[in-house]
Design a protein around this nucleic acid. Structure first.
Lengths: 220, 220
DNA sequence: GACTCCCTAGAGTATATACTCTAAAAATAC
DNA sequence: GTATTTTTAGAGTATATACTCTAGGGAGTC
């Protein structure tokens, strides 16, 4: 693997693990057993490393959120979207932690992240719209759907921060189980809009994302 | 005003304005025309200043979220809660920016903030429950209400961060108008649960929180 | 006036941190 | 094999930053 890629990977790991604020470029170099000079040969600044990580994050999410062409959306699609996006957020979890700071100090990132947000919001709306086409959700007025999509985005992007700030009492780690509860929360928002045909199916699906249900399942 | 209080106020101002990460204790002292030694006579560390600010924030929010005794909740109460809480968030907006970092580096804060979150969530549930008693919202199952309350919390606490990260393109400031849209977003979540009696009233109330509606109102 | 207590000044420090510079090794091209 | 380019090491630096330490001012009390 190329040194440049190793730097990106190691940085992501360390940022996620210890928080970007607590990880210096010297730490990253030391972690990889390379010299600081070497690191700075590949990246002009720490900011550049963060930007590069964002580009990868963006690619991943865009990949996850691709819409199938030529067929209707299914419930399985919807669940896949939710699970993958939460997985993506987890893999790049340091990023949303001090996002405002990164945007303040990097103009490219500010511009790109803004476009990324808008793209995601459009896609969420498109997903909701196609769930209506598929008879899974009821039709709603356009302005209302925009607002719903935004709420979905807010819940999704703040879920990890909520977990970290509300559960991290005794150094307790965030489990996959807790991460999955994010899916539960998003489904909650959409329940009132489910068609009669799908309501029961979704409600029972939702239960699988309750904390603890994973244990129960694996216990079977 | 006592020097100690001046330090807290100046810190809050500077943190909100420039981001806590970019504000050093020396900056704070310089801003107040006092010596660093003087600042450290009143606070043992920067962390202590942040903790003290949190205590004030907490007091403010707890004050806003008091429930009236001996009478039912009204729609006006509900709106008051939303408006004041967003105002509070605005006044202490630096705090949610790198909250995870503060909790990582201060055990007291971690414990207190966790209790604060739980207290707020309980209050949100209580508010929802009393809106049901008042015939404004429909009755829903208990688990579902818990989940709804959590979504409200997530939307409220992440609203400012969304504004900052999605709008701050050309150094554009966040306006009161944009802040108010947070109220719109929360109402969106509750629309499906409105009783027939109240639906129309709330829907027209909600329109006042659309971006731009303030301008239109003041133009009349 | 002397004593006490709270408050303040301001120079100073240890450490961290992002980043630079030079020289040389390693890879690649011809 | 030689020339050229890419990559690497590692010592070094300028600056920032949280915090310390000592000396003393000012106000109230006896």
């Amino acid at each position: 693997m190329k040194t440049r890629d190793k730097i990106i990977l190691a940085s992501l790991d360390l940022f996620n693990e210890r928080g970007e604020r607590n990880v210096t470029t010297n730490h990253i170099a030391a972690h990889l057993n390379i010299s600081p000079g070497n690191l700075y040969y590949h990246f002009r600044s720490k900011t550049d490393i963060i930007y590069e990580i964002f580009l990868q994050y963006q690619l991943l999410v865009d990949h996850y959120l691709q819409l199938p062409q030529g067929r209707q959306l299914t419930l399985e699609d919807k669940i896949y979207y939710l699970e993958s996006v939460f997985d993506g957020l987890w893999s790049y979890r340091f990023f949303h932690r001090d996002l405002e700071h990164y945007l303040d100090s990097d103009e490219r990132l500010r511009r790109d992240y803004r476009e990324f947000t808008m793209r995601c919001l459009r896609t969420i709306r498109e997903i909701l719209s196609r769930l209506q086409d598929a008879g899974i959700l009821c039709r709603v007025e356009d302005g209302h759907m925009k607002s719903m999509a935004l709420n979905v985005w807010l819940v999704v992007t703040s879920w990890l921060s909520f977990l970290k700030t509300s559960q991290g009492d005794d150094g307790q780690e965030i489990t996959r189980d807790m991460l999955r509860q994010g899916v539960y929360q998003v489904i909650t928002m959409e329940i009132p809009y489910l068609t009669d045909e799908y309501r029961d199916r979704v409600l029972s699906l939702q239960q699988k994302y309750l904390p603890g249900s994973l244990d129960r399942m694996s216990a079977i």
